[in-house]
Amino acid sequence: MATLEVAGLEKSFGGVRAVQGVSFAVSPGEMLALIGPNGAGKSTCFNMLNGQLKPDAGAVRLLGCDITGLAPRQVWRLGVGRTFQITATFGSMTVLENVQMALLSHHRRLGELWRPVARMDAAPARALLERLGMADQAARPCGILAYGDLKRVELAIALANEPKLLLMDEPTAGMAPQERISLMALTAGIARESGIAVLFTEHDMDVVFGHADRILVLDRGRLIAEGAPAAVRADPRVREVYLGSGAVTGAH
């Protein structure tokens, strides 16, 4: 069974149809890239998957379970990890504490009033950081971290609840090229190892074509191509969207 199934997703903002009839699926261990030019509807699409936006129509199913319209925190509880285009971490906490928070939330221990966080879930958090090569940064405050490191912290947070699906919005934006490659390689490794389905958007085509198993291409809210990297690279519609000097492709 596919980890994530999306069928006929629709969203309009005041008459502008941002996403129209998008359907696709991601399988366990698969790296699926969602690409498209600016304004194609990638972020809107993404935000509907984890509940930040409510779709006007269509369905989102996680392991066959309908999760359409659930709040992000409920979606997360069902096993969907998320990283953001602009990193969102807790600036007043250390790297380790950030990961601990995700673990504590996963274990539903956030209501505890007595035991200090310092002694709770520290070991698994450290292990996660270890896995992402961030162990030496564990004690630093997130507020002063370099951007690339924040992206890794986000990934660690996203992995904390042993997700079945990972949603990564521009995971390598703002990173140095070498860092990008290593982060995506790491992600891909984890995904395959743990059978996590990964859906990511990305601007850097090297990253996309280097790491995605499959690619979805979105233009003006519609899915225009889908397939393995080589096939997508060869698709004339995709070439037109990306290279076609702004000429309108087809009259809507």
């Binding site: 984890n50 925190r73 969102a88 956030l110």
Partner: peptide, 22 residues
């Protein structure tokens, strides 16, 4: 304790807090 951390979490980043089930 975790509760106090959760308070700070939602203050620091509402987006992230929500995204980890808070």
């Amino acid at each position: 304790a975790p509760f106090g951390y959760a308070l700070r979490a939602q203050r620091d980043s509402a987006l992230r807090a929500e995204a980890i089930g808070i």
